[in-house]
């Protein structure tokens, strides 16, 4: 449970920071509405990531489908918030938002994969040492 909360917090921070950075580089103003919407999207995205929780019985294909469902949920949330706040939604806006969501998703995937790779390397080194000690 502790690691679940910790991971959700890390995810929240990454998503929120990336959203603020993208908004900043696009020259947008950080009004209260924008900050609140970023907080909500970051919070919702991190909490909803339980959808991606590994279930041992699932095959890789099913995991990929759940990942797509997760991305769809995030996109619907963004469009929903934009509508609630009265922001204009054109196809291009939705397209840009989709690219941003995919970008953040891939970034987090990459960061997690890099971390997992390091962890696996540590395990492999320990396995090697163990085999050498047993010789």
């Amino acid at each position: 449970m502790r690691s679940f909360i910790k991971n959700r917090c890390i995810m929240f921070c990454i998503i929120f920071s990336v959203l603020v950075l993208i908004h900043f580089f696009r020259g947008g103003e950080l009004s209260n509405d924008v900050v609140y919407s970023f907080i909500f999207v970051s919070f919702f995205s991190s909490v909803m990531s339980f959808v991606l929780k590994d279930n041992e019985k699932f095959r890789a294909r099913r995991v990929m489908i759940y990942q797509l469902i997760y991305l769809c949920i995030i996109m619907v949330t963004i469009v929903g918030i934009s509508c609630l706040l009265g922001w204009k939604q054109s196809f291009s806006t939705v397209g840009i938002n989709f690219i941003i969501v995919m970008g953040i998703y891939l970034l987090i995937k990459y960061l997690l994969f890099t971390e997992d790779k390091k962890e696996a390397e540590g395990i492999n080194t320990a396995l090697k040492e163990r085999k050498n000690n047993m010789k």
Partner: peptide
């Protein structure tokens, strides 16, 4: 190593992560 498996450590050649987030 999972809900349904116990693994002999000495039989592991190597461990690696997968894109789907598993090991």
């Amino acid at each position: 190593v999972s809900k349904s498996m116990i693994l002999n450590i000495d039989m592991i050649e190597l461990v690696y992560p997968t894109i789907s987030g598993r090991f």
